[in-house]
């Protein structure tokens, strides 16, 4: 074997990716060629440097599964997802099918205007502003100013704005929806809400009992109970404030507030925090 050929093979030789015969030939060459042996040594040194840099574990978002599922479901229930799902079916090649698609598209184009309940799990309740009469919430119903929502164990509600921003109210939660307020948002009395806010909705607010979260960025969740309101930010930045003070919470940070004090300094989030978020996995 000539040096030129051996040098082309050294990378695969080091990776143990050559056939037995070729390995024997390279071995034989290396025993008699100090230059190629030195080349192999240098390659091994380089390998260690590369492996250290490229194989070093990196931090990754602990909420990736939740975010991916929420985004996939958002796309599936959107106009594009519906059209693609229906168009993929053979029966729609008939004239009747095409007419049905047009009807669906027209409905969907008109339907999403305004803020709506796009997913309802279980039989959560709603009451209109100023009314004490509670009814079963229905998918598709319009969210009006002051509408109160109440979920019990294992129940959830997803509320979507026309721009795709969405709030997911978790189990055992109570919130008042404020779509016409400026900024738009909701008020959480108890429980948890997960928010995925589009950039157009900057200034979006969710008020907890002890502090208010104002969107500067895009994705966070708010939890209220036991005299504390907690904010966890997954993406962008969220202003967390009450009468006693204010903090700007950046991605992968959390803060909490009690009634008689300013929101806490920023704390790092941990993968364990996503355990408090389990309900979204079942959306």
């Amino acid at each position: 074997m000539k040096c030129e050929l051996v040098r082309d093979l050294l990378s695969a030789y080091m990776d143990n990716e050559l056939g037995a015969d070729t390995i024997r030939e390279v071995d034989a060459h290396l025993r008699t060629c100090p230059a190629c042996s030195a080349e192999l040594e240098e390659l091994r040194l380089q390998h260690r440097v590369l492996a250290k840099a490229l194989a070093t574990p990196v931090q990754s978002s602990p909420w990736l599964a939740e975010r991916a599922m929420a985004e996939a479901q958002r796309r599936q229930t959107g106009l594009f997802g519906m059209a693609r799902g229906y168009l993929g079916r053979a029966w729609l090649r008939s004239a009747l099918g095409v007419a049905a698609v047009l009807a669906i598209l027209l409905t969907v184009v008109v339907w999403p205007r305004g803020v709506r309940l796009v997913a309802v799990q279980g039989t959560p309740q709603y009451a209109q502003a100023g009314s004490s009469a509670w009814h079963n919430a229905r998918r598709g119903m319009r969210v009006t100013q002051g509408l109160r929502l109440h979920t019990r164990q294992h129940e959830m509600i997803t509320v979507r704005w026309p721009d795709g921003s969405q709030l997911v109210l978790g189990p055992e939660s109570q919130a008042t929806m404020l779509p016409d307020s400026s900024p738009a948002g909701a008020s959480l009395a108890a429980g948890r809400v997960y928010a995925q806010i589009r950039p157009q909705q900057m200034g979006f607010q969710i008020a907890g009992p002890q502090a208010t979260a104002t969107v500067v960025g895009t994705e966070f969740w708010l939890s209220a109970g036991h005299g504390e309101t907690w904010l966890f930010v997954m993406r962008g930045k969220v202003r967390f404030s009450n009468d006693h003070g204010s903090v700007l919470v950046s991605r992968w940070r959390k803060s909490f507030a009690r009634a008689n004090g300013a929101p806490s300094p920023l704390l790092p989030t941990s993968p364990l925090d996503s355990n408090s978020f389990w309900w979204l996995r079942h959306s």
Partner: peptide, 22 residues
């Protein structure tokens, strides 16, 4: 099954993020 999907993501999320960063 969302729990199974979450477990798969947990297994691979670091590697996929590293692949993309690199």
């Amino acid at each position: 099954d969302p729990g199974a999907f979450t477990a798969l993501v947990e297994t691979y999320r670091e590697r996929i993020t590293r692949l993309a960063i690199n």
